[in-house]
Structure formats: C-alpha cells, structure tokens
Nucleic acid binder design. Structure first.
Lengths: 168, 168
DNA sequence: TTGGAAAGTCAATAAAGCTGACATATAATT
DNA sequence: AATTATATGTCAGCTTTATTGACTTTCCAA
C-alpha cells in the first residue's frame, strides 16, 4: 500500500476537532478508572493502596532494582516511596539487600509472599487488558500501543521499554 | 458455537503472552502520567488539584448538570465532591442554580472565569492528545479508542458517549 | 581526606478521598 | 394532610498518598 517514503504519517493530515479530542481525553479518563478498578478492589481489604501496587509491580518487573531507580520510575519523592517500601519490608513482601558492588545501594526483591500478591494483582489487571484486547481486535492493539507511547513523556518512554537494574 | 458470526473478531485468536500484557499495563501507567502532567503543572500554582480539574471539565462538557449526575460520573462521595465544588463556587468559577422543575436539584454552570480555566487546562491536554494522535497516525487512533472503550466499566462506557443533563 | 551520592528518617503540611451523622428543602406517595 | 423519599449541604474524624525541609549514616570516588 505504501508507495513511497519511510515516514508513515508525515504526509497525512489529521483533521481533529476539539470534540474528537475531548472524546479521547474522556475515554482516557474512564478507561483508567476501569484499568485500576480491579487491583483497587483487591487492595481495599488489605492495608495497602495503589502506591504499594506500583512498587510491587516494578520490583517484580525488575528484581534487584535500586531505590533510586524506583524513584525515577514512579516519579515520587524519596520520603513517599520510603513509607510504602518500609511497610512492604516490615510485612515481609519485599526484601532489601545491600549492594555488593556499591554498598550504599539497596537492591529490592519480592519475597514469595510479595510475588504472590503481585500475581494476584496483575492477574486481575491482565484479565481486563486481555479482554479489552480481545474485544478490540489485533489491529486495535497496535494502534492503542502507538498512541500510548506517543502520549508519554519522552524519558518515561525510554523507561517503559527497558528498565535498567543498576547504575547509569 | 457458530463458526461464522457477525462479531468481527470472534474467529481470530489473539495469542497474548503475559509479557505483552504487562507491556500494555505499563504503557497505560506511563501514558496516564503524561496525560495528566500538563494540567497538573498548571494547577500546581493555584490552590486547585486534579479533583477541581475533573469537576470543571465535566461541568463544561454538560452545563447544567446536577450534583448527583456529577457524583455518578466522577465516582466519588458527596462530601468529597462538595468540598471541591464549594471552593469553585466561592472563587466564582462555578455557578449553582436551583432547578426550575425540581427545586431540590442544583444545576452547575461555569462562569466566564471558570470557562477560562477550563480552556487553559484542556488546551494543554488537547495539545498533547493531538500530538500523540499525529505521531501515531489515523488508524492508530481508531484502535486506541476501541481498546479504551473495551477497558472501561460498562456503565462508564455509557456515560462517556452521552452525558445526560437532568433527571432520568 | 574531603565531597558528594544513596538511602533512611523525622516533622510538618496538604490534597483528596472515605464513613457516619445530621439538617434542610422539596417532591412524591399514601 | 401526613409521611416518606430524594437532592443537597455540612460537620467531624479518619486514611492514603503525596509534598518540602532538615538531618544522619554509610560509603564511593576524586
């Protein structure tokens, strides 16, 4: 179909009314509500919230990640994260190990109990994501991902594609 | 089990690894961070937060909407919304008018100052959405919207397509 | 050896939500 | 007319999640 240039869209004009954009904005709002609804329900019972979910998610994703790494990813302050992390460690869901090469660093890992919670939360979220993908179809998924990537802040885009574990 | 049906995707199998789903989940997380970043920055200076933004957005979208309507849309409690609404009314950004047909109801409208704030916030958000749409291309937009719709809770899906103004 | 980075902590504060209880005005029903 | 239900508003108290600022301990690196 492409008869020319490498740039896929640079020669296509998108006419977007404010109304269309508003619909996109609201769709994002309502979809995010749905996106977080299941984990929120699960966490509501326990003494945990969305902040704990995010920490557990990213520690699971990048075992051994340092506190500083996590701070950058979550975009919160040291003190905020520390409170969350402290309860998770106290409750035996997260383990903090002193760095071997740089002993100032703490490397974070999920314990078996932590991994279990992570599984419970992400199972729910994956189920919804899977259902949405199924309903929308394969091509929709590609488009979905493309728009989301474009909507991120550039430095976050990097983090979302590859999460580094230790030093810069 | 009909092997051919009107459903567009029922006969297509989507093989989604947990890894692919996790990427989608994270993309949603980071994209939402970006999505709210600009309004957050604008609101940071003033005495307002995301809650005020949401109220102003939906009052602008559906002028004359009642408090109860707004409660349903935002999914918060009366007390939470009321605190936000009270400051907006005190500051002269929102006007509350006693219902003509049902005098128990209060119908909410933006004042000129309220409309101005709304414009400032949504301009920023629309700009980002427009940029994302442009980067991702027209077909991506369709897919993006389809997945978001599928990800919402069903009752919210209804609200996102048509926001009713007064009584049921 | 000195400077700075990584992590942790304490205190004070704020935004935004929650529950529960209660009041007022008004509509609807009996 | 009396009762019940609804829409709104408000008070008090609590929780979670965030903030800023100040400070300490540990430890790497110049």
């Amino acid at each position: 179909m492409s008869d020319r240039s490498p740039a896929q869209h640079s020669d296509m004009l998108l006419f977007l009314t404010d109304e269309q954009l508003r619909q996109g904005i609201e769709a994002m709002f309502f979809a995010y509500q749905g996106f977080t609804a299941d984990p929120d329900r699960i966490l509501a019972g326990m003494a945990y919230g969305r902040a704990h979910h995010r920490a557990v998610h990213f520690i699971n994703r990048a075992p051994g990640t340092t506190v500083n790494n996590l701070l950058g990813i979550l975009g919160v302050t040291k003190q905020s994260l520390n409170r969350v992390l402290r309860t998770l460690i106290e409750d035996g869901l997260v383990e903090s190990k002193v760095g071997r090469v740089d002993k100032r660093e703490r490397h974070l890992f999920l314990t078996e109990a932590g991994a279990e919670l992570e599984r419970k939360l992400s199972d729910a979220q994956r189920a919804r994501m899977r259902a949405a993908y199924r309903d929308a179809g394969p091509e929709a998924v590609t488009g979905f991902r493309a728009v989301l990537e474009a909507m991120m802040d550039p430095n976050m885009r990097r983090k979302s594609s590859a999460l580094k574990e230790s030093s810069t």
